[in-house]
Design a protein around this nucleic acid. Structure first.
Lengths: 150, 150
DNA sequence: CTGCATGCAAAAAATTTGCATGAGG
DNA sequence: CCTCATGCAAATTTTTTGCATGCAG
């Protein structure tokens, strides 16, 4: 692990470009956010951040999360839950989601063919593609086989 | 336009299967929901419903929306806004979204190649695919050309 | 008739905002 | 130093819930 990860420079960049400051809180929140793999909601991030610095207020986490999303370093979505979910936008291998509507299982995957096709579609519509999210919903093997809940 | 649309029977079906009732409110809300094209949030739907029957409470709309989602007739997501967005799950031609992160423009599209590929991926992971959502984010032509806001 | 559904309003949850103080550049 | 950021708490916004009564089956 290198000292400064892939997000550090882009973030720094975005901040200074917009007259914002790289405070200790922002650093810590970003660090925590990017270290955690997968998606997490506000509460999870807030809790994780508080572990390291119990003085950080929730408003700061919300505000930082907003900065991260606006800077393009994070994405927010919602799978069906009540609160917003966040995930790093810059991952070495981008992954999409296969979600079981019965048991909540989430599998991550990446399909080259789809990825390239997305670029085609975007171009056809005059878009410069930056990112995407894709969620496939269905019922997983286990659930199909021995549906435990019904 | 036929009297009863594609959603009527599945809904009826889901309701009776779960011991729920097809009330006038549910009928009206579903009707309004499916008549409106594209995505809409709670407020929009509530307002539209109130136009037809000003006595319906918001709780009922929320509850019905939940029923629609659980029955698989509607999908909820969130593009970045503050509140959940809903859209019919059963459309003749399923569409995905191309979203401009600069100006908020939403273009709907459908790509056969991606669709079929999704099925392959799902099968590979042992999933019985029911539905999916896909959002491509980028900046649109207009925004790219003459970025009006900056 | 019986029990689920509704409307209302209150409650809970999620997110934003105002303000005095602290700290980055 | 000057301005933006923070923490706190209050304010908003969004969604859920309890309860008496209404209505579908």
């Amino acid at each position: 692990m290198s000292d400064d990860s892939a997000w550090a420079e882009p973030l720094q960049n975005y901040l200074s470009k917009n007259g914002l400051r790289l405070t200790n809180q922002r650093k810590l929140i970003a660090q925590t956010f990017f270290e955690t793999e997968g998606h997490l909601n506000f509460e999870q991030l807030y809790e994780a951040v508080r572990t390291r610095d119990s003085n950080i207020g929730q408003a700061t986490v919300y505000r930082t999360l907003k900065v991260l999303v606006e800077s393009g370093l994070a994405n927010s979505s919602r799978f069906g839950g009540n609160s917003a979910l966040y995930e790093p936008a810059i991952t070495d291998d981008h992954h999409d989601h296969l979600i079981c509507t019965e048991c909540g299982l989430i599998i991550e995957f990446c399909d080259e063919e789809i990825e390239s096709r997305q670029n085609v579609v975007a171009k056809q519509n005059g878009f410069a593609l930056k990112d995407h999210t894709m969620e496939l919903y269905g019922s997983c093997q286990r659930t199909n086989a021995q549906c435990p809940k019904r």
